[in-house]
Design a protein around this nucleic acid. Sequence first.
RNA 1: GGGCGUGUAGCACAGCUGGAUAAUGCGUUGGCCUCCUAAGCCGAAGAUCCCGGGUUCGAAUCCUGGCACGCCCGCCA
Length: 593
Amino acid sequence: MQILRDALEPMLEAALKSVGIENSHWKSMLAPSREHDQGDLSFPCFPFSKQLGKSPADIAQQLSSIIPQHDAIGEVNAVGGYLNFKADSAWMAEIVLNNGIRIGDAYGKKPNNQSNILIEHTSANPNGPFHVGRARNAILGDTLVRLHRLYGNNVRAEYYVDDMGKQVGVLAWALDNLSESDVEQTLSEREPINPKWRGKADHERVRWYQAAQEIRKIREDKEEIENEIGRMVHASEHGDQAVLDAFEAAYQPVLEGMLSTLGRLGIEFDTFTKESMFVTNGDVAKLMTKFQSLDIHGTAENGAEFLDLGARGLKGKTEFFFRRGDGSSLYATRDIAYHIWKWKQCDELINVLGEDHKLQAKQVGMTLTELGQKVPEVMFYSFIKLPEGKMSTRKGNVVYMDDLLEEARAQAAAVVRELHPDYLNETIEEIAEAAGTSAVRFNIIKKSPDKGFTFRWEEALAFEGGSAPFIMYSHARACSIVEKCQQQGIDTASALAVDSLELPEQMPKGMTELLRSICVYNDVLSKAVNERRPHLFANQILHLATSFNSFYRDCMILKDGELNIVNFQLLEIARNLLRTGMEGLGIVPIEKM
RNA sequence: GGGCGUGUAGCACAGCUGGAUAAUGCGUUGGCCUCCUAAGCCGAAGAUCCCGGGUUCGAAUCCUGGCACGCCCGCCA
């Protein structure tokens, strides 16, 4: 709790000085208490034992008696060599009720930070629908974008469109050369397209792509096919506009289908940048010329060129090829041109990448350094597996996000229908869509990105405990209380305006817990944003919802038609914090459940 | 073979800039709706923190050596 720390540090410093400790290492030792009921911040006294010739317990005891009384401190105690500080409930209430704590600016407000942040995420090849694995990037990336905005930063969400190269080439070839019956025959062993997604181009066209991948391996004329695809890919890499246009015609509907899936999850982009731009505008050619002047430049027998990153300390694969023997560029080369371009339009650059890109990101980073450019920050994430193994669009071994969202919506609808048989169908559908999609999102966000996990339907569709619907429910509950107040004709606006409040003498546990949770909110948001670990904030919102539920249990807002103003004001703060927090996570903050 | 990452209750997951009795959810189990939404709340049981060594007053956390799993080691993207 930063606000408690700020209040405490000067007092602790003085106390330490008076017992003879003057170095400043102690600051990092004042840390959140492990034992949550012992205090909010704890200070272990063990290291001073030798220096002072006293037992840690004695030192803690002595310090506790020196620390002066202060509004912020509810309790100081010395237990087993620890000095524990508990924030004072009334003090927390004072700060919270008087807007003394910054909680981020949420949506629609101006950024309070002038620096421009560019976050590139998703950037999936436009060759087929999102499966759950590919979608982890989009969900994590979008959450990072949202959290930055909640924190008050100015962010641009960018999608890098892979509009050239082999994957799109195969797709374009397939659409031009295969009939529907070719495709269906080739894929006859596989599951047919879900009728629900007929007409959605990502689902339709991926079958052409998948069929082409098979045909390229088995058909008699496979060599000619390879030549044809190779010719197009080549042309695209040399900036042949006709071929690039043909590619675009092939992938654009697919990309739109993919984006509509993401849209359902609340994911949107500010800008799209096509890879081919860096070929057609000459950036890549200039870059490759520049590489030739570097000390670490090398040339292979067939004329292919590379940078020797081993000379800069890279272990393992040391040669980083940027030009093929035939003179064309490689994906990584274009990626570097792209990075240089990105740096021209932002102050801070973040990429969201799968763990399979770690080496590539390292190579790009080292090359950028070699060119005197800054290195982007990267949020890596591990893959989602299926119980049967790895997901692969090519092999068709996937759980599509569209199917997952449908299933989630259907199951959520069943829950709502059972809980509230009296709700209108339309209401049920609305709640189900929000709860279903939010649950899917949250299930991915709440896990640490560097942890791989196995997708399980029952987890993705859990609507209790640590889920999005749990948070949504707490929020909806808060909303329903406000609604009830208004129904009863209570003037909520003037209740909010009251500023001389009398706090309860004995503060209920639920209220203290809620205040605590509110007081650490911004600490966690800041950490989640700056360390690029959205799951920390997800857990904080879960915690906020839990403590709100305790507050709800202990503190009646409306009793016998009578409004408790303190409780009401706290309710509104918590409700607002829940709502903005949910927006930061991409959970839909519906008001009725 | 080399590099990177992960390994914590039956399951899942947090904690990992060293600090107390390792947090949370599911599952198991006992209780709570004449009272603002029970998708909720309160309680109980459940953990060799992968294994061995080391550093330290103190190790889930740091170092080291293993083991298991994942990813990478293309003139692919």
